[in-house]
């Protein structure tokens, strides 16, 4: 050990009031400056190039036909996700059941609907009437009570919603199953030891804990589906992507109209991401010692700290400046 300098005790040291100077980080400042310049260039390129056609974007962003298309996209997404996750949950429970036939049937479903591309599945549903002209309700393999034409029962909108939901169910089944598997088996054992009925074990004990891993994955799926609905344009349904194509085929402003669609997809995704954050917090209860603050709480906390610091400074002993 060679540190004789330490032995010289200064006045400040003996008073126990050595001042701490924070380390400098020039590298961070340079990296920050580079990124700031790149961002400025990107914004400049977007704003100043007239080819982006911003006035046209503005004119069509809230055009009634675009708004209708946005609404239809939201409807398709909601139908696909709600029906998809309902069926997916049933499939996941089948897959986890002790009845082999149920488990294999669920496996088979996931295998089939995950393997065939969504666009193909949609076209199959769209053309269902060509395969089965009539759909009958009655005793299996026995007499039918009544029949309807496939065309009447499954129009293009139903075909699209059905296609999206059935496809989504296969993915949802795996997400829900993964969620159930992530719950500590001891939880189920404790529930069984307490005599809690089976259905209650699933929905009161297992599912809420499974939700913690289901929600982030489901958020991904919902956001994926918002954009995934754009494939139904092949069925000539007026969702967002199809609608902007119709408009730019008429007015020729391709880039501007694609921008309109992109902005709306961004808006929808932003809303969903924010919603996901709060849903995750809801299911995080009890699973961490304290919940992380929401962005609003965070901003409020920073402001109170700043205000408190400002109030203290004049009253302090001015130690920082010595």
């Amino acid at each position: 050990m060679t540190a004789p300098a330490v032995l010289e005790e200064t006045a400040a040291e003996s008073a126990g009031s050595l001042t701490v100077i924070k380390a400098r980080h020039p590298g961070r400042w340079i990296a920050g400056a580079v990124v700031a310049v790149l961002l400025a260039m990107a914004v400049n390129a977007l704003v100043t190039n007239p080819a982006w056609d911003w006035p046209v974007v503005g004119a069509y962003l809230f055009h009634p036909s675009v708004l209708h298309a946005v609404l239809f996209t939201v409807e398709l997404t909601a139908l696909g996700i709600v029906l998809g996750f309902l069926l997916g949950t049933v499939l996941a429970l089948m897959r986890l059941s002790r009845v082999p036939l149920l488990a294999s049937a669920a496996w088979g479903y996931v295998w089939l609907f995950r393997s065939v591309p969504l666009i193909l599945q949609l076209l199959f549903w769209y053309n269902l009437a060509a395969l089965y002209k009539q759909i009958s309700f009655g005793v299996p393999f026995g007499p039918a009570f009544f029949s309807v034409g496939s065309m009447d029962l499954i129009g293009p909108v139903t075909a699209a919603a059905l296609g999206l939901a059935l496809h989504q169910a296969a993915y949802a089944a795996e997400i829900v199953r993964g969620g159930f598997l992530s719950v500590d088996p001891g939880q189920l054992e404790a529930a069984a030891a307490l005599g809690i009925p089976r259905a209650r074990q699933i929905f009161r004990i297992q599912l809420p804990q499974a939700m913690r891993s289901i929600v982030p994955a489901a958020g991904n799926e919902i956001i994926g589906l918002v954009k995934g609905t754009s494939v139904v344009y092949i069925m000539a349904l007026p969702e967002l992507f199809y609608q902007v194509q119709v408009i730019y085929n008429r007015n020729g402003r391709v880039i501007a109209m694609l921008l309109v669609a992109a902005i709306w997809y961004l808006v929808l995704t932003t809303v969903l991401s924010a919603a996901q954050y709060y849903v995750e917090r809801r299911f995080g209860r009890g699973l961490a010692r304290a919940l992380p603050p929401t962005p609003v709480q965070r901003v409020r906390r920073i402001l109170t700290v700043r205000r408190a610091a400002r109030r203290q400074r004049p009253a302090g002993d001015g130690g920082g400046r010595r």
């Binding site: 500590d184 001891g186 939880q187 054992e189 404790a190 529930a191 030891a193 307490l194 004990i205 809420p208 804990q209 299911f283 209860r285 009890g286 699973l287």
Partner: peptide, 12 residues
């Protein structure tokens, strides 16, 4: 029944 690892329900 009281378990070695408690097995309390963490979300309740």
């Amino acid at each position: 029944f009281v378990f070695q690892n408690f097995h309390l329900f963490p979300h309740l």
